[in-house]
C-alpha cells in the first residue's frame, strides 16, 4: 500500500514535468503550427538558470579560518555572507526558489529571440524542415551549454530548510514510515499552479481569448484586424517560460546536465501525441497519466513479471494510442489524423 502510494506521488511528480513541457509544445504547435524539437533545450536552459544563479550568489573569497590556530588555514566564504551576515546566507540557502525571479525574464527573452530569429522563417516550410532545423538548434544550444558548464551533472541542492522529508504517512493516517521529500511535494504543487495559471490566462483574459480564437481559425482573427503574429510570438515566449520554470524547479531533483533536455523532449513528444496534437488539456492529462504509468511500471512486483517494462511503457502506450486513436486521447476530430 505504502509503495503504491509513493509510486503515485513519484508519478505525479514526473508527470508534472512532462505536463509542463508538453503544454508548451502543444501551445507552440497549436498557435504557430511549428513542431519544436528545441523545446527540450529550453527545459535544460531553465535548469541551468538555477545552476548559474546559485553559482552567482556563492561567489566567494578566501578568508583565514580563525578556528584553526596551528597553521594558516583558509576557507571560502561567499561575499554575500561577508556583506550581509545571516541575511546573506539566507539568500544563498534560498537561491533555487529565488531564481524563479531571474528565470522568468531570461527565458522570456530567449524564447522571443528564438521565435523572431529562427522559427518565424519556418511557418510556411514543411514539418520535416521544421523538425530538422529545431533539431539542429537543440544540438547547438546543448553543445554551447556543455562548453561552458562541462559534461558532468551539476548537483544543485534545494535549500536546507526544505531538504528533509514530509511525514505524509502521518497526515493521511497511513504508516509513519511513509515519508516524501519536501521538494518533490513543492514541485508538484508548483507545476499544478503553473498549469492553472496558463489555463486561467488563456480562458479569462482577452489576450487568451484571441490566442484561442487564433488557434481555431487564424485567418479569420487576422481579418478582424488583430495582429495574430505578434500574439503568437508572445505565446512562444510564454511556452519558453513554462518549460524553463519546469526545468529550473527540477534541478534539485535531477542534477542538470547538458543532454537532459533531449531525454525529456522525446518523452514529452510522446506525451503530446498521446494527449492529442493541439489539445492543451490532453497534454496535461497525458503528462500526468504517463508519469504515473511509468512509475508504477518501475515497481519491483511488476518488473518481476514483465522485465524492462518501465523502460518502454510510455512508448508502448504511444504506439497503441497512435494505432487505435490517431488523434490522441483528447484531440479534436479531424486535426492531424493522417
Amino acid at each position: 500500500m505504502d509503495a503504491i502510494f509513493l509510486q503515485l506521488l513519484n508519478g505525479l511528480d514526473k508527470g508534472g514535468a512532462y505536463a509542463l513541457i508538453a503544454l508548451g509544445l502543444t501551445l507552440v504547435f497549436g498557435t504557430l503550427g511549428v513542431v519544436n524539437f528545441a523545446h527540450g533545450a529550453l527545459f535544460m536552459l531553465g535548469a541551468f538558470c538555477a545552476v548559474s544563479f546559485q553559482k552567482l550568489l556563492t561567489i566567494s573569497m578566501k578568508v583565514r579560518d580563525e578556528s584553526i590556530t596551528f597553521f594558516e588555514a583558509y576557507k571560502e566564504v561567499p561575499y554575500l555572507e561577508i556583506w550581509f551576515g545571516d541575511f546573506g546566507s539566507m539568500i544563498i540557502d534560498w537561491s533555487v526558489p529565488l531564481s524563479i525571479l531571474l528565470t522568468i525574464p531570461t527565458m522570456l527573452l530567449i524564447g522571443l529571440a528564438m521565435e523572431r530569429g529562427l522559427i518565424k522563417h519556418f511557418y510556411k516550410r514543411t514539418h520535416a524542415e521544421q523538425i530538422l532545423v529545431t533539431f539542429g538548434l537543440a544540438i547547438v544550444v546543448q553543445e554551447v551549454i556543455r562548453h561552458f558548464y562541462g559534461a558532468n551533472p551539476i548537483p544543485t541542492p534545494a535549500p536546507d530548510i526544505i531538504s528533509g522529508s514530509a511525514p505524509i504517512g502521518l497526515w493521511l493516517g497511513l504508516s509513519e514510515n511513509l515519508v516524501y521529500p519536501w521538494w518533490r511535494i513543492i514541485y508538484l504543487t508548483f507545476s499544478i499552479i503553473i498549469i492553472t495559471a496558463v489555463f486561467a490566462f488563456l480562458q479569462l483574459t482577452t489576450f487568451g481569448m484571441v490566442v484561442r480564437a487564433g488557434m481555431q481559425d487564424r485567418e479569420m482573427v487576422a481579418m478582424l484586424g488583430i495582429n495574430v503574429e505578434r500574439k503568437f510570438t508572445i505565446v512562444f515566449g510564454m511556452a519558453a517560460v513554462v518549460a524553463g520554470l519546469a526545468g529550473m524547479m527540477y534541478a534539485p531533483i535531477l542534477p542538470p546536465d547538458y543532454h537532459m533536455g533531449m531525454d525529456f523532449l522525446v518523452l514529452s513528444f510522446v506525451v503530446v501525441v498521446v494527449g492529442g496534437m493541439g489539445s492543451l488539456r490532453g497534454a496535461v492529462a497525458a503528462g500526468f497519466l504517463l508519469g504515473i504509468l511509468q512509475s508504477f511500471a518501475s515497481l519491483n512486483e511488476i518488473k518481476s513479471i514483465l522485465p524492462g517494462i518501465d523502460q518502454i511503457i510510455i512508448y508502448l502506450v504511444a504506439v497503441v494510442i497512435l494505432l487505435t486513436r490517431p488523434r490522441g486521447l483528447m484531440g479534436r476530430k479531424g486535426v492531424m489524423e493522417d
Binding site: 513542431v35 514539418h127 520535416a128 523538425i131 522525446v266 513528444f269 510522446v270 501525441v273 496534437m277 512508448y315 504511444a318 504506439v319 497512435l322 494505432l323 490517431p326 492531424m336 493522417d338
Partner: peptide, 14 residues
C-alpha cells in the same frame, strides 16, 4: 500507418 510528424515520432519512439 501514419505519415508526417507522426511517422517521425513513431520511428523515434521505436
Amino acid at each position: 500507418r501514419r505519415s508526417g510528424i507522426y511517422f517521425s515520432i513513431l520511428t523515434l519512439a521505436f
